[in-house]
C-alpha cells in the first residue's frame, strides 16, 4: 500500500543571488513498512526534499507539486493542519544528535512534550509513554534517564532518544536525515540495527536520507539517487547494486573506499556538483560524465524511464547496451580510473 506519494515536487528558495531550485521535479512513492533510501551528496537537494515533506522550510521557500500522505494532500495545507501532522503522522530524525535536543530541558520534559502535543493524556500517562518509548529503543534504566539533560548522554544514546521521541506518537511516515553520519562506526552499527528492528515493529514508511551507499545497502528496500535537485535513478536496492544504470551511481559506487582493491587507485568523479543558481542546460551530470554524448549537453534533461524487468528507472540518454555493459562492470568492482 502506497503511503507517501510525491509528485513533480519543486522547492525553490529565494536568495539574494536569485531563485535556487533545490528540488526540481521529484516524484517518488513509499509503501507502508518499506524503507526508501535517498542518496545524494551535499547540495543534491535531499535535505530540502525532506524538509518540504515535513513542511519545515523557511519562509523564503516555495513548494509546488504534490505531496500526498495516504489520501491527504500536504502541499497548500494550512500551517495549523500541517502542525497537527508533524510529530504525529510524520516524524523526523536529524543528523546531529548533539545539537538536536534542547540543552536546557531534561530528556523527560522533551519527551513528555512530544506526547502531549498530540495526545490528550495526563502528565503521568505521558511520562509512562516516554519511559516505554525509551525502553523500546534500548535505553537502560529509562526512568532515571528522564531526569537527565542531553549533555549527560553519549551521542549514540542521544540518537536513541531522538528516535524514541519520533516514534512516541506512532507516526505513519518517518523521515531519517543522515541519522548515523555524526556517529562513530560501532555506534552507527548499533543505531542501524535498532532501525532494522524497529522497522519490523512499527510498520511505518521510512524515508532514509544518506550520502552513504553502505547504509543504503544495510537497511533500504528501494533507493532513489539524487543529483543537483533531481532523481537520476530509482531502483529496488538489489537492482541498484547489481545493475546500476546511471553514470553518477556508478561513480558513487566506485568511489566507496571499501570496494576498492589494494593497488588500485580510487575511482574519482572529476569536478564538483553544479551551482543550482545556474545549473547546466540538459543533463546536470553531463559536465562530469565520462560517457557524455553531445545530446546530453543540449537536449532537455531526460526524465526517469523504466529499464529492464527489475523495476529500475533511470534518467539518462545513453543507450541501453552501454549502460548494461558499464553498469555490470561497476557493480562487479572492475572499473579502473
Amino acid at each position: 500500500m502506497t503511503l507517501l506519494t510525491v509528485d513533480n515536487l519543486r522547492t525553490t528558495f529565494r536568495t539574494d543571488d536569485g531563485p535556487v531550485c533545490a528540488v526540481d521535479g521529484v516524484s517518488l512513492t513509499v509503501g507502508a513498512g518499506k524503507v526508501l533510501g535517498i542518496v545524494g551528496e551535499s547540495g543534491s537537494g535531499k535535505s530540502a526534499l525532506s524538509l518540504s515533506i515535513m513542511g519545515l522550510l523557511p519562509e523564503s521557500a516555495t513548494v509546488e507539486g504534490s505531496i500526498r500522505l495516504g489520501e491527504q494532500e500536504l502541499v497548500g495545507l494550512s500551517k495549523h493542519d500541517l502542525r497537527a501532522l508533524r510529530g504525529s503522522e510524520v516524524a523526523m530524525i536529524f543528523q546531529d544528535p548533539m545539537t538536536c535536543l534542547n540543552p536546557v530541558l531534561t530528556i523527560g520534559w522533551q519527551l513528555v512534550e512530544a506526547v502531549r502535543l498530540h495526545q490528550q493524556v495526563s502528565r503521568r500517562e505521558a511520562r509512562k509513554l516516554a519511559i516505554d518509548g525509551l525502553a523500546a529503543v534500548g535505553i537502560p534504566s529509562p526512568e532515571d534517564r528522564l531526569r537527565t539533560y542531553p549533555h549527560e548522554l553519549s551521542g549514540g544514546m542521544r540518537q536513541r532518544v531522538m528516535i524514541a521521541m519520533a516514534l512516541l506518537n506512532r507516526p505513519r511516515l518517518l523521515i531519517a536525515d543522515e541519522p548515523t553520519t555524526a556517529l562513530d562506526v560501532t555506534t552507527q552499527a548499533q543505531i542501524l540495527e535498532l532501525m532494522r528492528d524497529l522497522r519490523r515493529e512499527v510498520d511505518a514508511a521510512i524515508v532514509l536520507i544518506t550520502h552513504d551507499l553502505g547504509v543504503v545497502a544495510e537497511v533500504c528496500d528501494e533507493v532513489a539517487v539524487m543529483y543537483a535537485g533531481r532523481i537520476v535513478e530509482r531502483a529496488p536496492v538489489d537492482e541498484l547494486f547489481a545493475q546500476p544504470q546511471h553514470p553518477y551511481t556508478w561513480g558513487l559506487l566506485a568511489s566507496l573506499p571499501g570496494r576498492s582493491r589494494t593497488g588500485q587507485r580510487l575511482h574519482q568523479i572529476p569536478g564538483a556538483p553544479p551551482s543550482l543558481l545556474s545549473p547546466p542546460p540538459g543533463c546536470r551530470f553531463a559536465p562530469r560524465c565520462a560517457l557524455v554524448l553531445d545530446a546530453c549537453r543540449t537536449d532537455p534533461a531526460p526524465s526517469l524511464a523504466p529499464v529492464g524487468a527489475g523495476g529500475s528507472q533511470v534518467a539518462c540518454l545513453l543507450d541501453q547496451s552501454t549502460r548494461d555493459r558499464e553498469g555490470a562492470r561497476y557493480a562487479a568492482g572492475e572499473e579502473s580510473a
Binding site: 519545515l56 538536536c100 534542547n102 540543552p103 512534550e113 512530544a114 498530540h118 531522538m162
Partner: peptide
C-alpha cells in the same frame, strides 16, 4: 536557527511555544 528549535517544530509545537519554551531560555 539551532537544530533543537527545528526539532521542536518537527514535533509539531506551535510557533509561540517554540519561541517561548524552546528558544527564549537559551
Amino acid at each position: 536557527s539551532e537544530d533543537y528549535v527545528r526539532t521542536a517544530r518537527a514535533k509539531g509545537a506551535s510557533e509561540p511555544r517554540v519561541v517561548v519554551r524552546h528558544a527564549l531560555r537559551n
